[in-house]
Design a protein around this nucleic acid. Structure first.
Lengths: 196, 196
DNA sequence: CATGTTTTATAGCGATCGATCTAAAATGAA
DNA sequence: TTCATTTTAGATCGATCGCTATAAAACATG
C-alpha cells in the first residue's frame, strides 16, 4: 500500500522520553528530540504530531512502563510490608543510579501548571500511587480499629510524600544518606501502621 | 556624578522573581522579564548581568525573604510544637492561595541538574530547612533517650519531605484535603517525637 | 553652564525555536 | 510494471531566543 516506517516506534519513543526526562519539556528542542530519536523532524511530526503531543506519548509510555508496573508489583506482593520495602528499596537504588528523578514528578512541576489536560493525567497518576499504598495498608488491617489513631489514607499520603521528596532530592543531587533515611522512615510508617 | 536609576532595585527584582517562580527558568524569556520589571532589556543587563545572573539574584532574594524568615520564626517560637504547627499551617495556606509552589523546590528540579553552583546553593538551603526542624525537635528532648526509636535527624528529614511534597502537589494543583492531611501528619511526627 | 559618567531607549545582531514545504525514495495493490 | 500512497531527507518559514551596539537623555561635579 505505501512505504513502511524504517524506525521502531517504541524504541524511538523511549529515546524521546529520555530527553524529556533528563532536560525537561522547555529545555528540550524538537531538534534535540529528532537527533536523539535518530529520525528527521518531518518523520517526528508525521508519526507523533507536534512537540506537546510527543510529550504526551512519552508520559503515557512512562506511566505504563515505570509507575504502574511498580504499583502492580506492590499489589502482587504476598506480604504488603515486604512489598512496600521492596518498592522503596528499588526507588532509592534507581534514584541514586539515575539522577533524572521521575518523569511524572518532573512533569507535575513543569507541565501541570499550564496544561490542564496533562495536569489531570498527572493528578490521576499520583492518585494511583497513593491508592496503591492505601490498598497495601488496608491489607495489613482488615478490621477497622476506630479507637486507634492509625489512618490508612493519611499514611498512604505520607508515603506518597516520601516518594515525591525522594525523587526531588535525587534530581537535585541529594546524598544517599538522606534518601535512604527518608525511605526507611516511609517503610517504618507502614510497619507502625501494622501495629507494635 | 552620573545619571541615577529610575527604578527601584528591590521591587523590579521582586517582579523578576515572580516570573521565574510562576513559569520556571527556561520558559521565562528576557523579554518577559523586562516587561514584568517595567524596564528595558538594556537596563536589565546593565543592572543584573545576564539571565542566569538575574535568576541567581532572584533565588537569593527568595531565600532571604521567604525560606530563611520562616526558619527564623521557627527558631524564635517558645514552644517548638506550636512553631512547627504554625510553619505547616502557613505553608498550606500559602500553597492553596498561590499555586506557584516554592521557588527553591522548583529550582531544585529544573535548575540544579544543570548548574553545579546553583545546585550547591539549593542543597545548602534544603539543609537549612532540615536543620531548622532538627533544632526544633532537639529542643523537645534535651536528654537523649537512646533506648527509644525516636531519631531527630530522621524525623527532621520526614518533615522536609512533607514540605517538598506539599510544594510539588500544590504546584500540580492538588486539592486542599491532601495538602492539609500531609501537613497534619508532619505536625504529628513532631508531637510523637515529643512523646506520648 | 560645561564636562564626565551612567542609564536609558531603540534597533538589531546571529542563533535557534517549533513547524512545514517540496520532492525524492520506497513500498503494496492493481 | 504502473500507480497510489506514505515516509523519507533537506531546506526553509516567520517568530523568538539571549544579548549587545549605538546614541540620546539625565544627573553630579567643577
Amino acid at each position: 500500500m505505501a512505504r513502511p516506517r524504517t524506525f521502531d516506534q517504541p524504541s524511538v519513543l523511549a529515546a524521546a522520553m529520555d530527553q524529556f526526562w533528563r532536560r525537561g519539556y522547555e529545555a528540550t528542542s524538537v531538534r534535540d528530540l529528532a537527533s536523539a530519536m535518530s529520525i528527521t523532524g518531518a518523520s517526528l511530526y508525521n508519526a507523533f504530531g507536534d512537540k506537546r503531543s510527543l510529550f504526551r506519548h512519552c508520559l503515557d509510555a512512562y506511566l505504563d512502563t515505570y509507575a504502574r508496573r511498580r504499583i502492580a508489583e506492590l499489589d502482587a506482593s504476598d506480604d504488603p510490608i515486604r512489598g512496600i520495602r521492596a518498592f522503596f528499596d528499588n526507588l532509592v537504588e534507581a534514584s541514586l543510579k539515575d539522577r533524572r528523578g521521575c518523569l511524572l514528578v518532573n512533569s507535575a512541576m513543569e507541565v501541570a501548571p499550564w496544561d490542564d489536560e496533562l495536569a489531570e493525567l498527572i493528578e490521576a497518576s499520583l492518585r494511583e500511587i497513593e491508592d496503591g499504598f492505601h490498598r497495601g495498608l488496608e491489607r495489613l488491617s482488615p478490621e477497622p480499629r476506630s479507637h486507634h489513631r492509625r489512618d490508612a489514607r493519611a499514611t498512604a499520603r505520607q508515603m506518597l510524600s516520601a516518594v515525591i521528596a525522594l525523587r526531588v532530592l535525587a534530581r537535585a543531587g541529594g546524598d544517599g544518606d538522606r534518601l535512604r533515611s527518608i525511605a526507611r522512615s516511609a517503610v517504618a510508617l507502614a510497619e507502625d501502621y501494622q501495629g507494635p
